[in-house]
Amino acid sequence: MKLIKFKEKAIHFFFFLTAISAIVILLGIFLMLLFNGIKMFKDVSAFDFFFSTVWNPTAYGEPSYGILSMVMSTVMVIIGSMIIAVPLGIGTAAYITEVAGPRTQEILKPIIEILAAIPSVVIGFLGIIFVGPLIAKVFNLTSGLNAINGSILLAVMSLPTIISISEDAIRAVPKDYKEASYALGANRWTTLIRVTIPAAISGIVASIMLGIGRAIGETMTVLMVTGNAPAMPHSFFDSIRTMTATIAIELGEVPYGTTHYYAIFAVGTILFLMSLSVNIIAELVTARYRSRRI
């Protein structure tokens, strides 16, 4: 009897440990980034770090550590990718749930899921050999390694997330809404645009946020196709270097314990905070959408 009780407790404890391990890991990562990153401010002023556009830690003369251009670059590819992925993603989700017959659904859904399984390095490769030359040709540029290229590829990568979560949201809209709309004489298109999508909007917003979360942290693809020029971007045709690419490029060679080393951690901290806030927004919106459904 006693043994069973002990076993019960042990199992209980074991599952508690697995449950909190994620929290411990998350907190550990954040503290590691923060404590290493903060040491940089001994040598670099916070103002220079946040508002200088020149990131050149391995300068010939005086090194500089301004992250503004790379934050702008990251924001720019995210905006670009969402301009492409949001209409495409919502459109696909609406088609799958509202228009497509069951057979089409059966074929389409697994294909979209497979899209999520393509390794990012393969997508980057596609960007170099196919999308880049195409962009150069279409826009009459000399090189296709630029922000647009990164945006297109990130759009492809965030599409599966956006489609599958929007699809769930649209499917969750109660049948009564649609029936009421039809009863009032609205056709399918009007019902979809005026009733179903607005009713599912919080779920759709959450899907967009998670899509952004997917795109923000993406490293390999943008590293391969955006040209990695650490200049302040002026247009989508400029070569850019995102925060993730900078970390990936420089962490391999940076001497331990230098300002440059800590600066990379500081960039990581900012990136972490950016992606954390996007995820929190997604979480809040989803919570609201759940409570509304009941």
Partner: peptide, 21 residues
């Protein structure tokens, strides 16, 4: 800052082959 930082030498060769400027 506008100099593109390529990942490897082979990538520079590939990029130059495709870029007239």
């Amino acid at each position: 800052p506008s100099v593109r930082r390529m990942n490897g030498t082979a990538q520079i060769v590939e990029a130059v082959r495709k870029d007239k400027a």
